[in-house]
Design a protein around this nucleic acid. Structure first.
Length: 774
DNA sequence: CCGGTGCATGTTCAG
DNA sequence: TGAACATGCACCGGT
């Protein structure tokens, strides 16, 4: 009997042997419906050899099968699974080599389920049962493992398998091809889907009949974590609920042949939610980390060949077919699924993915996941941001029918979190992670970095270094941006009209805002000779600088009238305080900007140190603020006076005599201790700022007016300058975090205008201490 | 001139 | 070593 239920032919006359296999054998082909049945269809990848050997077309290993006696599909269907074993080479199921009485054995699907101890591994192959061979222009086409789609690629194809599902999820075969099965509805949108669904149902049916291993076919599909207990420890295998586990997909020809990097990865917790919350069965298929090309404007997503052939409809023409895929928000996208000839092979791509990628706010390094909904076979495209926090992005469930995500879906996540990049309620940790995904490191995954990124570090360095068109960044660049982001958090304020909604996720409170954040006002931190720190802010109206508490956070719009800390200067009419120290800092920032322009990345740090020296000299000599004046070279700290003998200023020029990283002298010990204290203090201040933010949010609705009214050096108006200064601060910070590194002394030389001057203050204080101690 | 398309090429990695 | 894949780039058509 032709296993194509739409055909149902039982006549052997209608079976022809004529489909040439690579091995030279011929496949059985139904004359009526064109469905072909070859041994490989039931033994996954093993082709019938005339001598009784089967050749795995994946690994070309030849294994003898004792079940080849029958030339009729039905016999393979019923008995072909005799003691299926697994190919020791490629782990594809194989028939054993004993000619045992086939009647004693259960049906194929169940046997296949235990072929390698992974029940899930062997489910869902029934789509193979109704496969008219598609003779494409590509010789490889005859071995295309997914050709079973072909009859379903044509909605009006008479060979469309008709299976009807009742409310219980059971099915019955449609006796005639003319009887349109109900599942043709989804097929109209996804012509190929029925094949999956049908295949699945067939397997389910087979499984239920065999009443063995699997008690529930739905369980096979629904809960990979449960149905795949024996999943080999692929990358990231862990019992931890937080571990992102790569599991070989349950279905698809050659799916276990897929590289682990394409295995859908999800945590046990996600799986639990998937299985527990969804009514539909989600079958994770595969995932792919987006490359720069994938995420680029060109709009072409390169699909892993094996995945494309295993899970997507077969295509014989290069132009391919339109493929409808629903995203996790329920929106359906139509991509062109096609391929290009490539080195006697094919390169599969999804074209037109740019809008989808953009809507998901994905970038290179993020991961897109492909899943399938059963029944129905609808393809679902999800994604996972590459944030180091491992947060699954885009799992927002949008409607009742599509609240399925891909491998990573089902995880409860509020929609706002999708817009992490613009959500002010994000914790600093989350926000830190955002830029890091540019660095493409999946947190929570134990995958090796190269697998996670899809790009080797070595390659990344090379490509980015040599060709700046690549979007992948070197780690140092990413680090720079990451820290800049951290510092940026100090400027972010909630929208003044916004009141946060506090949600608790895993015992952590998160504030959610509907409105995007606004940027707060920049301030600078200075230190008095006594070591006391103070913050300065500029009035938006009169541009006068006002002394503020060191932990003050100003809204974007801030005027003297908002100066609640100093009643004597809460009006623009109040005189300005001394700016002598402040000017030094500002001047230093300007010098940095000048020096950094045009400086190559590789020598940047060194040159900046030189710049610091020059600035220090200028400051020490008490020269003017003339911009074009070239200061003399010294290592003295710019804000220190002539004759200052602090730890910074006593350093000899050009780094000579600088303490090394292992130095344990009193000065260095003090610096180290101070630095630790500083870090703790900054964390504390961060918390305090958040509180203050709420207090000042109401006043932050006005735009931050550009400074410069008075011609004074502007800290707020030039983002480029700001970036420069920030970058300097980053590097300085990085330098200091390297330890003790090199510098325990260098940390005090420069700082960001936003808060990093604390380090500078530290340097001063330390210097004073050292002075005192010496 | 610009953007899209199709293919070529270089690199990486698994077998 | 060959397959897979990331991306460059030449070509072509539209504006």
């Amino acid at each position: 009997m032709c296993m194509n239920a739409s055909c149902g032919s039982t006549s052997t006359v209608e079976w022809k042997k004529g489909w040439p296999l690579r091995s030279g054998a011929l496949a059985d082909l139904c004359f009526r419906c064109g469905s072909a049945y070859e041994t490989s269809l039931f033994c996954e990848t093993f082709h019938l050899d005339q001598s009784g050997w089967r050749e795995c077309y994946l690994c070309n290993k030849r294994l003898h099968c004792g079940c080849i006696a029958s030339k009729l599909v039905v016999e393979f269907m019923d008995f072909g699974g005799v003691g299926c074993t697994t190919c020791t080479n490629c782990h594809q199921p194989n028939l054993n080599n004993r000619g045992e009485n086939p009647g004693l054995f259960s049906r194929l699907p169940m046997n296949r389920q235990h072929t390698n101890g992974e029940s899930g591994m062997n489910v869902g192959k029934a789509d193979l049962f109704s496969q008219p061979l598609v003779q494409g222009d590509d010789k490889r086409e005859e071995f295309m493992p997914h050709r079973g789609f072909s009859n379903l690629m044509k909605p009006d194809n008479a060979t469309t398998t008709g299976y009807r599902h009742d409310a219980n999820g059971t099915h019955e075969s449609s006796p005639t091809p003319s009887q349109p099965p109900s599942l043709n509805m989804p097929m109209a949108a996804l012509p190929y889907s029925l094949n999956f669904a049908t295949a699945t149902k067939k397997l389910m049916d087979a499984a239920s009949q065999s009443h063995t291993v699997q008690s529930s076919a739905s369980g096979i599909l629904q809960t990979p974590s449960k149905s795949v207990p024996g999943t080999p420890s692929g990358p990231g295998t862990s019992k931890s609920a937080q571990a992102r586990i790569g599991r070989p997909p349950n279905e698809g020809r050659g799916r276990s042949h897929l590289l682990p990097r394409y295995w859908p990865k999800y945590t046990d917790k996600e799986l639990q939610q998937i299985s527990g919350n969804l009514n539909l069965n989600i079958v994770p298929l595969f995932e792919k980390t987006l490359s720069a090309s994938d995420a680029g404007r060109i709009g072409r997503l390169v699909l892993p060949k094996a995945c494309a052939e295993a899970y997507f409809p077969p295509i014989s023409q290069s132009e391919g077919i339109p493929l409808k895929i629903q995203d996790v928000r329920g929106k359906e996208w139509t991509f062109q699924f096609r391929f290009w000839p490539n080195n006697n092979s094919r390169m599969y791509v999804l074209e037109g993915v740019t809008p989808c990628i953009q809507s998901m706010m994905l970038q290179a390094g993020d991961t897109v996941t492909f899943s399938r909904v059963d029944p129905g076979g609808k393809l679902i495209m999800g994604f996972r941001k590459a944030a180091h926090t491992g947060v699954i992005q885009g799992c927002g469930l949008t409607n009742g029918t599509s609240n399925e995500d891909t491998s990573s879906s089902g995880v409860t996540e509020t929609p706002t979190s999708v817009n992490a990049s613009s959500c002010p309620a994000q914790t600093p940790e989350e926000l830190k992670g955002l830029p890091e995904h540019l660095n493409s490191n999946h947190g929570g995954s134990s995958l090796k970095k190269s697998e996670v990124n899809g790009v080797k570090d070595k390659k990344r360095t090379r490509t980015v270094g040599a060709k700046h068109k690549r979007m992948l960044w070197r780690s140092e660049e990413a680090m720079e941006v990451r820290i800049t982001w951290e510092e940026t958090q100090e400027l972010i304020r909630p929208s003044p009209s916004e009141k946060p909604t506090v949600v608790v996720i895993e015992e952590h409170e998160f504030e959610e805002f509907n409105e995007p954040p606004v940027f707060g006002k920049r301030t600078i931190v200075t230190s008095r000779p006594s070591g006391e720190q103070e913050r300065w802010g500029s009035c938006d109206d009169c541009s006068k600088w006002r002394r503020l508490p060191v932990d003050a956070l100003l809204p974007a719009k801030w005027t003297c009238s908002d100066n609640v800390w100093d009643e004597s200067r809460c009006s623009c009419s109040a005189p300005e305080e001394s700016l002598k120290e402040l000017e030094n800092v500002l001047r230093m920032s300007k010098e940095y900007k000048k020096r950094r322009s045009g400086v190559s990345q590789t020598v940047r740090t060194e040159e900046e140190l030189t710049g610091l020296d020059a600035l220090a000299s200028a400051a020490a000599l008490g020269d003017t603020l003339g911009e074009e004046e070239e200061p003399a070279t010294t290592t003295r700290h710019p804000r220190h006076r002539v004759g200052c003998s602090c730890i910074v200023c006593i350093q000899p020029p050009s780094g000579k005599g600088r303490h090394n990283s292992s130095c344990l002298c009193t000065v260095c010990s003090t610096v180290k201790r101070r630095f630790k204290t500083l870090m703790m203090r900054r964390k504390k201040k961060q918390l305090e700022r958040e509180e203050i933010e709420a207090a000042v949010a109401a006043a932050a609705d006005q735009e931050n007016k550009e400074d410069g009214k008075t011609g004074r050096i502007d800290l707020n108006s030039d983002p480029c300058n700001r970036g420069d200064v920030e970058a300097v601060g980053v590097e300085e910070k990085d330098e200091s975090e390297k330890g003790e590194a090199g510098g325990c002394l260098g940390v005090a030389q420069a700082d960001d205008v936003v808060g990093v001057t604390e380090l500078e203050g530290e340097g001063e204080k330390i210097g004073e201490e050292s002075k005192g101690s010496s």
